[in-house]
Amino acid sequence: SEGDRGNSTCIKAELSASFSITYDTANGTRTVVVPLPGSAVVGVASSCGGDGRFPSLVALFGDGHSLGLSFSSNVSLYSVANLTLQYNLSDVSTFPEANGTDVVTVETTSVGMVARVNTTYRCISASPVIVGGATVTFSNVTMEAYMTGDDLSPNESVCTADQSFTTAPPPSPSTTTAAPAPVPTPPGTPTQGRYSVSNSNGTVCLLARMALQLNISHFSASQNKTIQEVVNLLPNQTTSSGSCDPTSATLVLTQGSATNLSFLFTLNTTSNRYHLTGLSVVAAWPDMTVSLPLAEECQLDQDSMLIPIVVGAALAGLVLIVLIAYLIGRKRSHAGYQTI
Rank of each mutant, 00 (worst) to 15 (best):
150 D>G: 05
151 D>R: 07
151 D>H: 11
151 D>G: 11
152 L>T: 02
152 L>F: 03
153 S>D: 05
155 N>Q: 09
155 N>V: 04
156 E>M: 09
158 V>T: 05
160 T>N: 14
161 A>D: 13
161 A>S: 14
162 D>R: 01
162 D>H: 04
164 S>F: 09
164 S>G: 07
165 F>P: 12
166 T>F: 15
167 T>M: 14
168 A>M: 06
168 A>G: 09
170 P>M: 04
170 P>Q: 03
173 P>R: 06
174 S>H: 12
175 T>S: 09
176 T>H: 06
178 A>W: 08
179 A>F: 08
181 A>Y: 14
181 A>D: 15
182 P>I: 08
183 V>T: 09
184 P>D: 05
184 P>I: 06
185 T>A: 07
185 T>D: 05
185 T>C: 05
187 P>T: 01
188 G>F: 03
188 G>S: 03
189 T>H: 11
189 T>A: 10
191 T>W: 02
191 T>L: 01
192 Q>D: 06
193 G>F: 00
193 G>H: 01
194 R>S: 10
195 Y>S: 05
197 V>K: 01
197 V>I: 01
198 S>N: 13
199 N>G: 14
199 N>F: 13
201 N>I: 14
201 N>F: 15
202 G>E: 07
203 T>L: 03
204 V>R: 11
205 C>Y: 03
206 L>H: 04
208 A>N: 15
208 A>I: 15
209 R>L: 15
209 R>M: 15
209 R>C: 15
209 R>H: 15
210 M>E: 15
210 M>I: 15
211 A>R: 12
212 L>F: 11
213 Q>Y: 08
214 L>K: 04
214 L>H: 08
215 N>R: 13
216 I>V: 11
217 S>G: 07
217 S>E: 10
218 H>R: 12
221 A>I: 07
223 Q>P: 10
224 N>F: 11
225 K>M: 10
225 K>L: 10
226 T>N: 14
228 Q>P: 10
228 Q>K: 14
229 E>T: 14
229 E>M: 08
231 V>R: 08
232 N>D: 02
232 N>M: 00
233 L>M: 07
234 L>T: 06
234 L>S: 13
235 P>N: 00
235 P>E: 00
235 P>S: 02
237 Q>P: 07
237 Q>H: 12
237 Q>T: 08
239 T>L: 05
240 S>I: 08
240 S>W: 09
242 G>S: 04
242 G>L: 03
244 C>D: 00
245 D>H: 08
247 T>N: 04
247 T>P: 04
251 L>D: 11
252 V>I: 13
252 V>Y: 06
253 L>G: 01
254 T>L: 07
254 T>I: 03
255 Q>W: 03
256 G>L: 01
257 S>D: 13
257 S>N: 11
257 S>R: 09
257 S>M: 09
258 A>S: 06
259 T>F: 05
260 N>G: 14
262 S>Y: 14
265 F>T: 03
266 T>M: 13
266 T>P: 11
267 L>C: 10
269 T>V: 02
271 S>R: 02
272 N>R: 02
274 Y>Q: 12
274 Y>M: 11
275 H>T: 09
276 L>S: 00
277 T>I: 00
277 T>A: 00
279 L>I: 03
279 L>P: 02
280 S>Y: 00
280 S>C: 00
281 V>Q: 01
281 V>E: 02
283 A>D: 05
284 A>S: 12
286 P>T: 04
287 D>W: 13
287 D>H: 08
288 M>R: 08
291 S>D: 07
291 S>Q: 06
291 S>N: 06
293 P>Y: 00
